[in-house]
C-alpha cells in the first residue's frame, strides 16, 4: 500500500506542476459558472412571474423552480456531469499512456512493485485529480447558501445537494476508471482521450436508446445507462442499486487495467 500511495502522490504532484491542471480547472470553472449564471437568471425570472400570478397558476413543469435546490442546484449538477464527461478523458489519458511514451513505464515495471500496486496507485492519483477538479464546483452551493433566501429559513436543502455532489464524484470516479483502462492500452494520450470519450458518451446516452426499444431490453438498457442511474441520486434519492452499478463498473475497469499491465510481463 505504501508503494501505491507513493505512486498516487507522484501522479498528483506531477499533475499540479503542469499547466495542464490549471487549464482543466479553468475550463471546469468557466463552463459551470456559465450554466450557474444562466440557471440563476431563469430561476429569478420564473420566481418573479410566479409572484405576479401565484404558483397555482404556473404550468406544472415550473414547480421545480419553487426552491433553489431543485431550481438551480439539481440542474447545475446535471450540467456538471456533462462537463465531466468532456473533461475526464483529458485527465485520465495521461495515467499510463504518458509513462509508456516517456519510457518511465520501464522504471515501474522493473522496480520491485506488483502490477496491482501500480494500478491502485495510478487510480488513487486519478481520483485525487478528478476530486480536485470537481471540488471547485462546491463554490456554487456555498454562494447560494450565503446569499440565497427561502421561506423555510435555509436557502438550500443540503442533504439533497450533497447527495447530488456524491453522484458527481461517483461519476467522475467511473470516468477515471474507464479512462485509465483505455490509457493502459495505448501510447498515445490523444487516442486514449478520444477513445475514452467515444466509450463514455454512448454509454451515457443509453437511456435515450432504451426509450425506442421494447421490454425487457428497455429495462436492461436503462439499468446499464449512466444517465438513468445518476438521475435519482441527483434528485436526492439514494439507491443501493446505483452504488452497486457504479462500483461494478469501477472494479471491472480496474481489473481490466490490472490484466493489461500484468500481460506486459507475458508478451
Amino acid at each position: 500500500m505504501r508503494i501505491a500511495l507513493a505512486i498516487a502522490r507522484k501522479e498528483l504532484s506531477l499533475f499540479f506542476t503542469t499547466p495542464w491542471a490549471y487549464g482543466v480547472f479553468t475550463a471546469m470553472v468557466a463552463l459551470s459558472s456559465f450554466f450557474f449564471v444562466n440557471l440563476l437568471a431563469t430561476f429569478q425570472q420564473v420566481q418573479e412571474q410566479a409572484r405576479e400570478v401565484t404558483w397555482a397558476m404556473m404550468p406544472p413543469d415550473m414547480t421545480a423552480y419553487r426552491n433553489l435546490t431543485d431550481g438551480v442546484m439539481v440542474q447545475l449538477w446535471g450540467m456538471v456531469i456533462i462537463i465531466t464527461l468532456f473533461i475526464a478523458p483529458f485527465l485520465s489519458m495521461r495515467l499510463f499512456a504518458e509513462e509508456k511514451r516517456n519510457k518511465t513505464f520501464e522504471l515501474l515495471m522493473t522496480a520491485p512493485v506488483r502490477p496491482i500496486e501500480i494500478v491502485l496507485g495510478k487510480y488513487l492519483g486519478g481520483l485525487g485529480i478528478i476530486s480536485a477538479t470537481l471540488g471547485l464546483t462546491l463554490i456554487f452551493p456555498l454562494v447560494l447558501s450565503a446569499f440565497g433566501h427561502a421561506d423555510s429559513g435555509t436557502a438550500l436543502e443540503w442533504p439533497t445537494v450533497l447527495l447530488g455532489y456524491g453522484g458527481i464524484l461517483l461519476w467522475g470516479a467511473t470516468c477515471m476508471a474507464v479512462g485509465m483502462f483505455i490509457s493502459a492500452l495505448t501510447e498515445s494520450q490523444m487516442l486514449a482521450a478520444f477513445l475514452t470519450f467515444a466509450v463514455l458518451l454512448p454509454w451515457m446516452l443509453l437511456s435515450g436508446v432504451a426509450q425506442a426499444t421494447e421490454e425487457p431490453l428497455r429495462s436492461v438498457l436503462t439499468y446499464l445507462s449512466f444517465d438513468a442511474q445518476l438521475q435519482n441520486m441527483l434528485k436526492g434519492i439514494l439507491d443501493v442499486q446505483t452504488l452497486v452499478f457504479f462500483a461494478s463498473v469501477i472494479v471491472f475497469s480496474l481489473l481490466l487495467t490490472h490484466r493489461t499491465v500484468e500481460a506486459r510481463r507475458w508478451a
Binding site: R2, I3, A6, I7, K10, S13, L14, T17, T18, N102, K103, T104, F105, E106, L107, L108, T110, A111, P112, V113
Partner: peptide, 29 residues
C-alpha cells in the same frame, strides 16, 4: 527486481519532477 538496479537505454525520467523528488520516488518504489 529487488536485487537489480537498472539503467535502461533511455533513462526513465519524469521531466516535470525535480531530481530530488524523482530520486525519492524511485527509492520508495
Amino acid at each position: 527486481k529487488r536485487r537489480i538496479g537498472y539503467l535502461p537505454e533511455a533513462p526513465p525520467l519524469y521531466p516535470d519532477m525535480t531530481v530530488h523528488g524523482y530520486l525519492k520516488f524511485v527509492a520508495a518504489l
